[in-house]
Amino acid sequence: MNPIALDIRSLAKQFGAKVAVNNVSLQVPAGSFYGLVGPNGAGKTTMLSMATGLLRPDAGSALVNGIDIWADPHAAKATLGVLADGVRQFDRLTGRQLVTYSGLLRGMDREEVAIRTEDLLRVMDLTQDGDKLVVDYSAGMTKKISLATAMIHSPNLLVLDEPFEAVDPVSAANIRDILNGYVQLGGTVIVSSHVMDLVQRMCTHVAVIADGVLKAQGTVDDVRAGKSLEERFVDLVGGRATNEGLSWLRTSSN
């Protein structure tokens, strides 16, 4: 197996005058639980979109398990599972149909898809809602069913953009357990998140990205260098307001 599960080489993307991702290189070791953190608009989603085949980069390449996703997309995508942020699902399908669809699209056979679909629905706590249309799911349920569609082909690498957003604490804990088990069995997970605390507890490695530039990468302990990840993140990214806050924001006024 390739020692680098995701090798991002000098990826760059510009939208008009705005440089969204500026020459970012990043190595995600196989078997790591990798956190990608950065403020809003830092370019996390843009970078992950380029690394997963959704957005063509202006420059650079991304290798999934050693295969360039832009040169040989079919082979690269076969070992890759993605939870994209901000995209719809085919929400006129039921949850069960959607997960099945994702499996069949990848050319898996029917029996295998059926077994794994039920397993995934069970661990995502969606068995009860498997026959409901996805359009009627709550935000958290939609997140979970999307995660299931990304996992059905048992990929070597999971790229999850904001997987815990809007997910309730119990489901989040369940998902974390699943992901931890998956990493222990040799899988690699990349999650993007704003929640530093979560990343510090959950991840083995972390990369900090701000304004499209990579600020730091390495193991969580290396990056945080004795501080909490949150403190270190603020140091790296900056932008904490030093002056006084909203002096008028108090309940007594008005």
């Binding site: 069960r96 149909q97 099945t100 069949l104 699209l105 050319g107 026959d131 409901k132």
Partner: peptide, 22 residues
């Protein structure tokens, strides 16, 4: 609105289990 449901796999069961069929 409240939720709508559909039993089972529908067309996914009837058509071939290939990417095209899906």
């Amino acid at each position: 609105q409240r939720a709508a449901t559909a039993r089972g796999l529908g067309f996914f069961k009837l058509l071939p289990a290939t990417p095209t069929g899906a």
